[in-house]
Design a protein around this nucleic acid. Structure first.
Lengths: 108, 108
DNA sequence: TCAGTGTGCATCGCAAAGCGAGGTCCGTCA
DNA sequence: TGACGGACCTCGCTTTGCGATGCACACTGA
């Protein structure tokens, strides 16, 4: 899969996932890998910076949660502002897809 | 429109356009601008490097054509290898769209 | 006991691509 | 003569994903 295509889609993906509920980093990676049947493996080097940026802009928050075995996980969850942003992103995404589609499949 | 989304789509767009026939740079920009109703204005700084790269990899060729008024235009046209590449890119594009769509619109 | 594996977080330097800005040349028309 | 638009192109910046790397801890099995 061409990496370049993914470039702008990571925030959309993350927000969409978090819209279903809070998740932690490793879980996000695993979820994406499983849902795509392995064709898309989100890398840590892409995930964490994106997550931190989303947090810095207050679209998501994070909190640490201790598991029964004593280990910690950092959960990320969607904020209201993030929901609004997600909605806008979705719209943009649809526009984008339709646009490219119009060039790829000219005429109807 | 988020620039980042466009990142990987430029070659696909260019090849798709050239699949309809030879075009010159300025014409490509105008065509894209018009077809998208102005929402997407392909910039020269994005177009020419992409075009040159496509030419370097022998997916397209270029030739100069002199107009009646004496001015020159550089036309780009699709090569067979470019057609094959386009087909592959289209496939990849569809895969990509379906993947993201699955996250954006979970469940059916 | 201790190495290996899996979980889980994170950063760093690199490469690629679009962008904004700038630059050049030339024909046309006022 | 000078402004405008067509037409080509490059350069440096920023952003982003990637690969590599690092750290820390729990569990398992030799």
């Amino acid at each position: 899969m061409d990496r370049e295509l993914l470039k702008g889609s990571t925030p959309l993906l993350l927000l969409s996932l978090l819209c279903e509920g809070p998740m932690y980093g490793y879980q996000i990676i695993e979820t994406v890998r499983q849902r795509t049947g392995g064709t898309y493996t989100l890398k840590e080097g892409a995930l964490y910076p994106a997550l931190h940026k989303l947090e810095a802009t207050e679209f998501i928050t994070s909190y640490w949660e201790t598991q029964e075995n004593g280990r910690e996980r950092r959960y990320y969850s969607l904020l209201p502002a993030g929901q609004a942003f997600l909605a806008a992103k979705k719209k943009e995404w649809n526009q984008f897809v339709n646009m490219v589609q119009a060039f790829v499949e000219p005429k109807a």
